[in-house]
């Protein structure tokens, strides 16, 4: 079993109104040093071990998890620690 952690973020230059709203709120709370915010999604998958895991996860991202028109993604594959 592997754990796949996928970060999905708006492409550079794509308006992120949620990020803008959070930045305004942080600024109102006195955190004016924040110059920009990007919000995105984090998806965790627990996947059967396989050799082509990177390829398969890439396909999942391209077909469904991310929208390549407006989002970029990257992911990391980790061992699942058994206890």
């Amino acid at each position: 079993m592997k754990k796949v952690i996928i970060h999905i973020m708006p492409k550079q230059g794509v308006l992120d109104p949620q990020g803008k709203a959070i930045q305004t709120s942080l600024s109102a709370l006195g955190f004016s040093e924040v110059e920009d915010i990007q919000t995105g999604k984090l998806v965790e998958l627990f996947v059967e071990d396989a050799e082509n895991i990177d390829e398969r996860v890439g396909e999942m991202c391209d077909k469904l998890l991310a929208n390549p028109v407006m989002e970029d993604y990257h992911f990391a594959v980790e061992e699942v620690a058994y206890t």
Binding site: Q18, V69, M70
Partner: peptide
């Protein structure tokens, strides 16, 4: 239709949120 690729582009949240 956009998500299915039958039309080009994508939808973002309204600029006003």
């Amino acid at each position: 239709l956009l998500e299915a690729g039958l039309l080009p582009g994508a939808m973002l949240p309204n600029k006003t949120l």
